[in-house]
Every structure is written in structure tokens, then in C-alpha cells.
Design a protein around this nucleic acid. Structure first.
Lengths: 302, 302
DNA sequence: AGCCTCGCTTGCATGACTGCAAGCGCCGGC
DNA sequence: GCCGGCGCTTGCAGTCATGCAAGCGAGGCT
């Protein structure tokens, strides 16, 4: 096979299940995927995909053999790319960062602005994604995550704890008897919560366990949206302190952060990228910048 | 890395040591290799090769890492290619065959002609090469070899024994006392031999051990050339019977083949290709055709 | 039953990559 | 010391692959 990129094509279509989605994965036009796949099948004299009704492309046995080889080659290519990037001493070029929505919406932008001043040659591409992007697959170079990472091949450090408590608008509290002294008093209030499918999120799980379902008068999966809803006076929202402390229009409805909900803010990269100059620079400027705000993150500024 | 073919380029230049030779390996223009390599180094921000005086390209440490990954990817690609080819049921397309010079010059062409008649859709590319082409690397699909193969991943069969004896022109023998009864009488004759660097060739080694160096009046590494020299009356030549028996202008100078020099003729392919329709067809037509001539190969037709 | 959306397929124009050719430099041999 | 050969580097023209746009078909929803 004298064109190894054909295998990347096969892998993308296999994973995507359709030409259009595969085109997105590959960053090329869907018509190009169509032509290249057909040309490949003709050159090799082998049918790689079954075309099913509705535009679904499904691997044949020969295609599965091809995709298996392609995956192993991809692993090699990704490890190589990390090694190359890991030795990259340039303080210019792009750096892909992934962050949570709340972090991006509140504290992060200030530090990114500072980073831009210190390293004007580096272009930060910030992905705010609900999916946990893969650092192994170089979907991102650096991740800012509000939980301790579990993957074995990551490298990074804890920047701060993360404190959570209930927030509301002052107007809401004025009408509803003022702040609450303890969480047990939640039952008397209107609550802003998560969509019912939001399992696995610590805050969502805590609310399910500690608050009657009938208390929820508004549900959304976006913490930013929850803070906006609280600000609008809809009810109490359980939010990270760094998002809301100091935010005009929001006050703590529960003065003390909830100990059970203590989290951790981490900055991580792939093990192989810790030598990348741009990654190190980001850790230094943005990571240190965020770490200096640990009092805010840990709810000691209110 | 979004162009895996870059790695094939790196591997070719690393193996070749120069752009021009790498271009030959890749089947593209040397100026294209030049441009693609420079573009790659610029995109990756890494120096892959040191340029040495005289046009030598030598891998840097980063380049060695790259070449190592490329080799592993190449192994995958080659194994995949064999699997695809091994399942190829088409009796059309090309088939690469490698053979010894003597076989190609004498017996083989007749069988290739027959193969062409039986399977007009198959294009045989015959490589007559002193190097043992690699079947693992798909440098050839089928090999006809006058020795038992040793590689573990080949598949094939022995077609015949191969007998060797001394030949000369009738004119030479008339002037020099007629045929010889035994090999011990060789000292009285002019001999055609091999170049002195031809170690590892059974016939050449036998001659070194059994004939005085002063007996050699003509040396060449080509058996066909040796048979032409014998026909010209230069002296005795040690040659395979299938090359010379029945050849006008040549007779056996030693009636009996030399037992010590008995060889074997094999037809082999890579294990993974034994299912390829074209390979099976070649085994059937050409392999069986040669096997039917085993009396000639084994010196029983004189 | 009709309309809309999604995915595939094909035509066309443009640009990028390639091969060809030529020039330059270096090295080796005479 | 000179000449020739080999390898690298660059300019230019042509070809091919790509993206864009449009059309078609199928499926789902109203």
C-alpha cells in the first residue's frame, strides 16, 4: 500500500459510520471522502465498506482487518506526534486548551489575556466542551479540569480546592426569609437543578440525594445558565464559589461551603507533552495565575 | 501528524542515505523528495536529517524516533497488503516473479509463454536479480530459487533436484584429449571460473576447493556468461545441466553430474499470499511445468 | 401525502503538487 | 589542475485532486 493516508480515511469512516461525519473528523469535504474511498476500493480490488440504507457505512471483514492495522498505525503516529511536540522548544504556534464552561466563563479569560501578553507568539485555541477531550489523541494539549484526573498517562498538578455552596439573588432572599443557616432548610425553597439525565456529576448527585424532586422549579445542564437563573430570582442554585463570589446580583444563600462537595481544580497535559515549551509556559503563566486565586476557589472570599 | 506518507518519505531517505536514491525507492522525482522533506521539517518544527557534505542525509535523534515509528507502521502496512493480496481472487493484474538468471535464460521463458496463454489477464513482471528479493516486503510475489529457502514465513515446494557438471565445446575437447573420466583430471585443463569475491556460491566454493587457482583462465560472475565462454572454446565450465544439456555447441566434459553439488529448485511465495489467485495459478502452470522437466534438471537427459 | 432535512453523488473550476529541465557545487579521477 | 559525473536545488508548466455547489433520494415528521 503506497498511500498510508488511505488507512486514516478507512478508520475515520469506520468510526463515524457515515461519510459526512468522517469528513468532519478528517477536516476534508464529504465529496472528497466519497471519491477517495471509492478510488481506494478500486485500487485494492477489495470492498472495505457495506453501504447500508440511510447512508450508513459498515466495515466488511476485509475492512475490519484494514481498520485494525490502521488503529495500530494511528497509535504509532500519535505517540510520535506527542514525542515531537514534547521536544518542541518553540514559544510560538498553537496550543489547544480544554476547560470547563464555568472556568472559561469566569476566572480563566483574565489569565489567558495575561498569557497572550507574555507570549504573543502562542495562539491559544480554547475548547469548552462537555466531553472529556482525549489528551492521548491530542484532541487537546492542556486540560483544566475541576476534578482529579484518573488516566494514567497524564501529568499535571492540583491548582486549588473547589468549594460549592448555594447562591441566590438578594431580591429572592428578601422575599423568602433571608439566607439559610443549614442545608436542611432547603426544602422551603425553590431550587434550580440539573436535567434528570445528569448522573455522574457530583453536584447533581448531591442534589438528588438531599433535595426533594418537587423542589426543583428549573432544570438545566449548564452551570452558567443556572447562575443566570439564580440571578434572575428563580431560586437557589448550587454553584462553585469561584463562579459567583463577587458576582453582582448574586449572594450566598448558604454562608458556608458544603464540605461534602469539595472538589479539586487540576491542570494537566499528556506525559509526553510536559517538555513542550508552550505547554510549560501555559502551566507557568495560567496555572500559576489560577493557583494564586486559591482563596477564591476554596470559598474564602465572600 | 496528518500525513502518514511523510513517514514513508523519512524512512526511504533514512535507508537510502541520499535524496536521489530515496526517490528511486519511492518512485518519485528527486526534486519532489527534496521539497516534501523540507516542507515536513518546517511543518513539524523539527530537523529530521543532518545534511552532510557529498549529499549524504543522516538522521538526527528526532529523525531516528520518527524512522522507528515509520518502520513499525510499515510492518503493519506490509502485513495488511499481504492479507489483502492473499484474499485476492482476481486472475488479472500484475504478478511479480523473481528468478535466477540461468533459469530465466533457459527453461523458464517457455513456461511463462504457456502461462500467458492460459491466463491472458495476468501481467508477469520478471525480475532477474542477483539480490535475494524480499517476499516479506513484497519486492516479489513469487520466487523461483535454485536453493532450499530458509526464511520461516515462506510457503512453497521443491520442484526438482538440480545437477551440475562440467561442459565444454566439442572443439575444445577434440584438441585437449576428449572428455574427462573423473574430476581429478581437471588439473590438465583450462577452466572458466568465478570472480574471487564470489564466496557463498556453492559452485564457486567447490571450484576453489578442488581446482588450483592457476587453472582459471577466465572469470565471471554470470553463469550464462560462463556457458557462452565454454561454447567459445575457452575451457571447461561447471554449470547446471538444465542450462546446457541439449544446448548446441556444448557437450558434457564430465559425463556424470557431481554428487556433492546436487541442488534443489524451489518455487516459493510469502505465507500470506498463498491464497492469492494469481499466485496459485502461477504455481499450477509454471511450477507444474517446471516440475515435469525434473529429468532435465536432475541431469538424466544427456 | 407533502415537505423538510440529512446524506450521498456528481460536475466544474481552481490551486497545489508534481515532473522535467537546467544550473550549481562538490568530489574524484586522470 | 581540469574535466566529468553525481547529487542537490530551483523555476516553470501541466495535471490531478480538492472544495464548492447543486441535484437526487430516502426517511421522518406534521
Amino acid at each position: 500500500m503506497e498511500d498510508w493516508n488511505e488507512l486514516r480515511l478507512v478508520l475515520a469512516v469506520a468510526r463515524a459510520g457515515s461519510l459526512t461525519t468522517a469528513a468532519g473528523l478528517l477536516g476534508i469535504d464529504h465529496s472528497t471522502v466519497f471519491r477517495r474511498l471509492n478510488a481506494l476500493e478500486q485500487r485494492q480490488g477489495v470492498r472495505v465498506f457495506e453501504r447500508l440504507p440511510g447512508g450508513t457505512y459498515q466495515l466488511t471483514p476485509a475492512g475490519e482487518r484494514m481498520a485494525a492495522a490502521a488503529e495500530r498505525m494511528e497509535d504509532e503516529a500519535l505517540a510520535l506526534a506527542r514525542d515531537i511536540a514534547g521536544a518542541d522548544g518553540r514559544l510560538s504556534g498553537r496550543l489547544r486548551v480544554t476547560s470547563s464552561e464555568t472556568l472559561a466563563y469566569s476566572r480563566l479569560t483574565k489569565h489567558l489575556a495575561e498569557f497572550r501578553v507574555v507570549h504573543p507568539g502562542i495562539v491559544v485555541e480554547l475548547a469548552i466542551d462537555n466531553r472529556v477531550l482525549s489528551l492521548s489523541r491530542r484532541e487537546a494539549d492542556v486540560a483544566l479540569r475541576p476534578i482529579r484526573p484518573k488516566e494514567g498517562d497524564l501529568w499535571g498538578r492540583k491548582l486549588a480546592g473547589v468549594a460549592w455552596t448555594f447562591f441566590a439573588s438578594q431580591a429572592y432572599l428578601d422575599i423568602n426569609g433571608g439566607p439559610i443557616g443549614e442545608a436542611a432548610a432547603l426544602g422551603a425553597h425553590a431550587l434550580i437543578g440539573w436535567e434528570e439525565t445528569a448522573g455522574g456529576i457530583m453536584a447533581a448527585d448531591w442534589l438528588e440525594q438531599n433535595v426533594s424532586a418537587s423542589s426543583f422549579v428549573y432544570r438545566t445542564n449548564s452551570l452558567v445558565n443556572q447562575s443566570v437563573a439564580a440571578k434572575a430570582g428563580i431560586g437557589l442554585a448550587l454553584l462553585p464559589c469561584y463562579l459567583c463570589d463577587g458576582e453582582p446580583g448574586l449572594v450566598r444563600a448558604l454562608a458556608e461551603p458544603i464540605e461534602e462537595l469539595s472538589g479539586e481544580l487540576w491542570i494537566v497535559t499528556h506525559q509526553d507533552l510536559k517538555g513542550t515549551a508552550r505547554v510549560r509556559a501555559f502551566f507557568d503563566v495560567v496555572g500559576e495565575g489560577l493557583a494564586r486565586e486559591r482563596d477564591l476557589f476554596e470559598g474564602r472570599v465572600a
